[in-house]
Amino acid sequence: MGKFQLGEFEEIVMLTVGVLFGNAYGVSIKKEIEERQGRNVSVGALQSALKRLEDKGYLTSYEGESTSERGGRPKRYFNITAQGKNAIEETRKMRNQLYDAIPKPALDVKIG
């Protein structure tokens, strides 16, 4: 784990970039997360997470087309890098390991 540092929100952003493969830019990522998670995501939080992930080398970006509804500004599309792929896999593996390590009786609780 030590090698790959991913916060909870960063992980969600990474995964969503993966889900939206080829169409992952600011607004689409924001909407996807809001839809799937049912939580509000601010442009500020998202943009700074994207910037951090790019700085870490987990994401790459390229400039896309500019459209009129964006006031002529271009989109910036994101893709997961090889290192990014390693990071989400590592995180998932660790999660599963932890889950498997829980003794059965601990989860044998009734809801409500």
């Binding site: 830019y25 600011g26 607004v27 924001k30 442009v43 943009q47 500019s66 509804e69 964006r70 006031g71 500004r73 271009p74 989109k75 910036r76």
Partner: peptide, 10 residues
């Protein structure tokens, strides 16, 4: 320019 684009789209 990207952030501005996102904001205007929203």
């Amino acid at each position: 320019k990207y952030i501005e684009g996102d904001l205007i789209e929203l």
